[in-house]
Nucleic acid binder design. Structure first.
Length: 231
DNA sequence: GACCAGGCACATC
DNA sequence: GATGTGCATGGT
């Protein structure tokens, strides 16, 4: 009795948390994609799917030499679905990619530079109107394909921040995004690295264990007792 | 065989 | 605005 762990309260501001994580892990070099268009396709394919399965689907598209809007346009939705089968939900995702292509062609004639010139808020509203593009996918496209300063929230962000004690796990996407953006300077590079770090953390140490046991956030955590870079 | 992974649309309350 | 369900593969 009496030895129960106190509820952890974050000792660091969110920005300090970022600095710690970044200092420890270093840059993540996200998004793993060679072109903005590849990033967009990857953002759709990775919905509720392990990234490894997405890589397989993207490699398939590359092997068939169709990872360009003009090439994908020629494929039927059924043909496309077969090529991205390994990413799961392939019928839905083929539909989603086709829907994005229609928008991309109609509004921007497949010109990424023109799309990138559009203001963040207008572009975000547009993307959310497209079938299959929800808030996280829209923000991923905006941040990682178009370098717009919008914070990407996902299941890892929610899990990690609530476990550390910054938020509760019942926050909606909108609220969680708002919390992050209000706590941080509006900076594309920072948003880019922070989201990548959340995913890295989520995959590595807090999948099933309470994050407070070994997270790098609290000064007394073994994991982060030294401020040395990871070897 | 169960469970999970870098969600989303749609129906319903 | 919140909650439940279908979508589907591949790794653990």
């Amino acid at each position: 009795m009496g030895a129960s762990r106190k509820k952890q309260v974050p000792k660091l501001s969110l920005y300090e948390l970022f600095q710690r994580l970044y200092g420890y892990f270093g840059p993540c070099h996200w998004w793993p994609g060679e072109t903005p268009f590849e990033v967009i396709i990857g953002a759709i394919l990775t919905q509720n799917t392990a990234w490894k399965n997405v890589v397989s689907a993207i490699n398939n598209l590359k092997t068939k030499d169709v990872l360009e809007p003009e090439r994908l346009e020629i494929l039927s939705q059924e043909e496309l679905a077969l090529l991205i089968r390994s990413s799961g939900y392939y019928n839905q995702k083929a539909h989603k990619i086709k829907s994005f292509l229609e928008y991309y062609k109609t509004k921007y004639s497949y010109k990424i530079g023109d799309m990138a010139k559009t203001l963040l808020e207008e572009l975000r509203d547009d993307l959310l109107q497209i079938y299959g593009i929800g808030e996280e996918t829209a923000d991923s496209i905006l941040l990682y394909a178009l370098n717009k300063p919008t914070f990407v929230v996902d299941a890892y962000t929610n899990r990690i921040l609530s476990r550390i004690g910054y938020t509760t796990d019942t926050l909606s996407y909108k609220k969680l995004k708002q919390f992050c953006e209000e706590s941080l300077p509006q900076d594309t590079k920072l948003y880019n690295e922070f989201h990548a770090l959340f995913v890295l953390l989520g995959k590595s140490i807090c999948k099933s264990t309470p994050l407070c046991i070994e997270c790098p956030v609290h000064n007394d955590c073994l994991f982060f007792i030294s401020k040395n870079k990871r070897k």
